[in-house]
Amino acid sequence: MKVSGVFAVFWKELADNFGSRRFLILFILISLIGVFTTYLSSQAIVAKPAETPTEFLFLRLFTSQTQSLPSFVSFLGFFAPLLGIIFGFDAINSEHSRGTMSLVLSQPIFRDSLINGKFLSSLATIAITFASIILIVFGLDLRLLGILPEGPELSRLAVFFVMSIIYAGFYLSLGILFSVLFRRTTTSALTSMAVWFFFTFFLYMLANVIADYTVPITQEVTEEVILKHTRVQAMIMRFSPMTLYGESVNVVLNPSVRTLGPIFSEASEELIPAPLSLSQSLLIVWPQFVSLIALMLICFSVSYIVFMKQEIRSI
């Protein structure tokens, strides 16, 4: 009986998500970005075939940037949060304002079926969106380059897929949290957008300012100072889920990336220029990946607890 409640909510919300206009707009936007970035990077590969390494060519479509456009992955860093926010920000408070909350909760379901069903259906929508975009890119690649992804590429792609869902899932659960905390949908929408803006743009500036202030770079600096400066900056940047996501997917999609920190040029010459295995790549970004999962789960747990304790009607 409990399970049927979650399923009923899940299927209804899934249909709602796919039918909503905001989803349609964002889906078209992200698909177009996928098509353009894939097209441009494949053109770059075709133009200079000699300069491109032949290994992991398919993954290169996602990460390589051209002069006119950043890579698809960095675009996703911007837009995946929006996808999460549009499903999350009015999940609970819109039920209150529409007057459907007590209608649904007076049916024989547990209260958590509602929030779980909504979370899972939005997560499923996000997953289907990403899967279809990856398929679009795949189709384009077949048309333009005619290369088939190999086994290791597919497994890396799968990890990238999961990471993207979790990244959007964090913003989804953040949106749900605000929809539980604020009664007005405009407030929760603006707050979610403010958090997104802070992590995406503001934190970058803040990291620079703090790094410059704590470890000033003057005319004659040693390598150590520069190293420290970069580390402070990276440390602050890692508060942002966008950085965590960017680092994770770049390492997973680029088997040649060995480290995320700065590296001395002498040291890099000593490295064997062979691609890492997937497990080695994952090892590099394990902290980032786990942090993303934790962020998502914490946000969702807090909204779950607050929602369960909330009065249906506050006087």
Partner: peptide, 15 residues
């Protein structure tokens, strides 16, 4: 809730 039907005040529906 299985045996009780409830029509809330100012009930709303999914438009």
């Amino acid at each position: 809730k299985r045996i009780t039907g409830y029509l809330p005040e100012n009930v709303g529906f999914y438009e």
